[in-house]
């Protein structure tokens, strides 16, 4: 009923406003609103040595079942920053994280980690999936989950060493879960499970962290604990990408912000890119044209198949 009562009405209003503004004050705004040109609100780092850029994405398009979910992403993430990724549901936030690790096929484009393909840089990338993505009834303890963070370093068939277990233990202590080390994971609360995941990332001892909604469904105390640790990681020069939902905390948490809605709407220092215009473009309707186009591509493919 809502759909029927405002067929693309609200989205077009936003766009209409900026169009008319563009017409009267020059074409800068008009250009910014046009997805085909490089919007000035996406800040790239062309002058830096590629080997010093933790994550560089070039002209990347991702499609699931031929339905595009991310279009033409160009992105540079500067080193040693706490970077937030925000955008509405279905904007492609998780997909982007997976794409950085080469876990989803790319229709085009490439990703480099410190100038090299992901496969060569695996060990310096730590990943925290969404908490709901795993089965928490699985019969293992918190410590065993954290030890999994070492598996990338251990290699096939070999067993984690004493030192690996020691590191896992320290990581658990660090997130305040030391006393729960031998608890079965289903007996932990949601916040505790998220801490275990964070501890596992710490145990990975990475330089670049990719975290998919680490703050989702956690209590206030856990959120504080997590952000403290993220800031500590940043202080150690690590780069952390965090998919985030709570717009209220964006300015407090993140140095750098990527605003996503099937394409990069804005990317840059949070205080420069986080404003009403970019929010409108990210959460407003203009970009539904992209999803309509994606849908059209899929319908066409389905019709042929």
């Amino acid at each position: 009923m809502t759909d029927a009562s405002r067929p693309d009405g609200a989205p077009q209003d936003v766009e209409g406003a900026s169009r008319s503004a563009g017409a009267s004050t020059g074409d800068s705004i008009n250009q910014a609103a046009d997805p085909s040109t490089d919007s000035p609100s996406i800040q790239l780092l062309p002058d830096l040595d590629p080997a010093s850029i933790p994550i560089r994405i070039h002209d990347m398009t991702i499609a699931y079942h031929r339905k595009p979910v991310l279009w033409d992403v160009d992105l540079d993430v500067p080193e040693g920053q706490l970077v937030g990724i925000v955008g509405p549901n279905g904007a492609g936030k998780s997909t982007m994280i997976l794409a950085i690790m080469n876990l989803v096929p790319k229709a085009s484009g490439w990703v480099r980690i410190y100038g090299k393909p992901y496969e060569e840089m695996r060990r310096i990338v730590g990943y925290v999936p969404q908490r709901e993505s795993v089965d928490w009834d699985f019969p293992i303890s918190a410590l065993e989950v954290v030890t999994m963070g070492r598996f990338g370093h251990v290699g096939w068939i070999r067993r984690p060493s004493k030192q690996d277990k020691q590191l896992a233990h320290e990581a658990l202590e660090k997130v305040g879960m030391g006393e729960y080390a031998h608890r079965q994971i289903s007996q932990l609360s949601g916040g505790q499970q998220q801490r275990v995941f964070l501890a596992r990332a710490l145990a990975q001892d990475a330089k670049v962290y990719l975290m998919d909604e680490p703050f989702a469904g956690v209590d206030a105390a856990t959120e504080r604990a997590i952000i403290d640790i993220l800031m500590e990681l940043r202080a150690q020069g690590k780069t952390i990408l965090v998919v985030h939902h709570d717009l209220q905390t964006v300015t407090r948490y993140f140095d750098w912000l990527i605003m996503l809605n099937m394409r990069v709407v804005a990317s840059g220092p949070t205080e420069e890119v986080f404003n009403d215009t970019t929010l409108n473009k990210t959460y407003g309707g203009r970009l539904t044209v992209l999803s309509q186009a994606a849908q059209a591509v899929q319908d066409y493919e389905r019709g042929r198949g």
Partner: peptide, 9 residues
């Protein structure tokens, strides 16, 4: 337990 992490490492 965690195919995602598994693939990523």
């Amino acid at each position: 337990f965690d195919p995602g992490l598994s693939l990523s490492v």
